[in-house]
């Protein structure tokens, strides 16, 4: 297929030339990324809808779980480290984009060995991100504080306990495990009656409602009169989760899952391209444009993650 090249770039729109100075393949990748951006946008907008309509009538207090409380764990460390792991994951993914830029750069210079190096590092970064996301999922599914689901509006409440902070009596977030003196990493099957009995016997424990109000032990049982406790929730699934509203879990799994699927497919494509680089296909072809196109896809995946991280975890 011939292309009539017109050397006068100002005239690039007059036919016979490429107005964006890109091959059709690269243009197609850009437009495909636009379509994918719209798919993710639709999901993020939906997420925004769920988050900002999860409010109490009249008081307008948010009923949405607090991300810092949910995502506070770090592999091999104990204690609460709000959002630290997710920040690390973000860092890893961004670094993999940097290595990708370097790979593309060396591709322009036709330096095969360097392309192999930086492409491999990108793949490792991507795979590490995936592994981390898998750990995050596992931890999310297993849960760490447990919760009680009540009948009215299927409200999810958390165990709280009395504490003294700066000399003042206050209540802080606790967990079902602490109430039951159980090890949170074991496998448990608490029945609602067992937990309620325990709650009756330990008056320093109370609950925290979905709107983040605390209730003392006495107030807790008054509250239970108006909204019967149904069951203990440990961990998270698609139909219910211990962190709060059902939609929180649904959005988490869906959005990070859809993104993770893109990272996964990106890693696979990168591996295929890496093999081609090693075989010398692009060296023979005279250009590393395929690496550049995949690079575009990888940067897109990274950019989407920045948005997901910002809107789901940070804000």
């Amino acid at each position: 297929m011939e292309e009539l090249e017109n050397n006068n770039h100002g005239e690039a729109w007059k036919g016979g030339d490429r107005p964006f100075k890109s091959s059709y393949g690269k243009l197609m990748m850009w437009f495909f990324l636009i379509t994918d951006a719209l798919t993710f946008s639709a999901f993020l907008v939906s997420y925004g809808f769920f988050r900002y309509t999860a409010v109490e009538p009249v008081t307008e207090k948010s009923l949405w779980p607090v991300p810092e409380e949910v995502f506070s764990h770090f592999p091999f460390l104990t204690g609460e480290h709000p959002l630290l792991f997710v920040a690390l994951m973000t860092f890893i993914l961004i670094m993999s984009s940097v290595t990708m830029v370097l790979a593309v750069n060396y591709g322009h210079k036709m330096q095969k060995k360097k392309v192999v190096l930086w492409l491999s590092l990108t793949i490792i970064g991507g795979a590490t991100f995936l592994g981390s996301q898998a750990w995050e999922w596992g931890h999310f599914i297993h849960g760490d504080k447990g919760a009680i689901q009540l009948n009215r509006n299927l409200e999810v409440v958390h165990i709280a306990k009395e504490d003294v902070i700066d000399g003042k009596d206050t209540m802080v977030l606790s967990s079902v495990y602490e109430l039951m003196n159980a090890d949170k990493y074991g496998h448990h099957d608490f029945s609602i009656d067992t937990v309620l009995n325990q709650l009756r016997e330990r008056p320093s424990f109370g609950i925290r409602l979905a709107n983040k109000d605390y209730k003392s032990n006495l107030e807790t049982f008054e509250y239970f009169e108006t909204s019967e406790p149904l069951e203990i929730i440990l961990g998270a699934g698609l139909k219910k989760n211990e962190y709060g509203t059902q939609d929180f879990g649904d959005c988490f799994f869906f959005i990070t899952g859809f993104h993770g699927f893109h990272v996964f497919s990106g890693v696979i494509i990168l591996i295929v391209i890496l093999i081609n680089v090693i075989k010398g296909t692009y060296q023979r072809r005279g250009h590393y444009e395929m690496v550049e196109k995949v690079g575009l896809y990888w940067h897109f995946v990274d950019l989407v993650w920045v948005f997901v991280f910002t809107f789901f975890y940070l804000v």
């Binding site: 729109w13 007059k14 036919g15 016979g16 490429r18 091959s23 059709y24 243009l27 437009f31």
Partner: peptide
């Protein structure tokens, strides 16, 4: 299909076929 149509119209117009 759509990606193809857009890219073709942008890149493959013959000489003199301005927008």
């Amino acid at each position: 299909g759509g990606l193809n149509y857009i890219v073709t119209i942008l890149n493959l117009r013959t000489k003199g076929m301005s927008m």
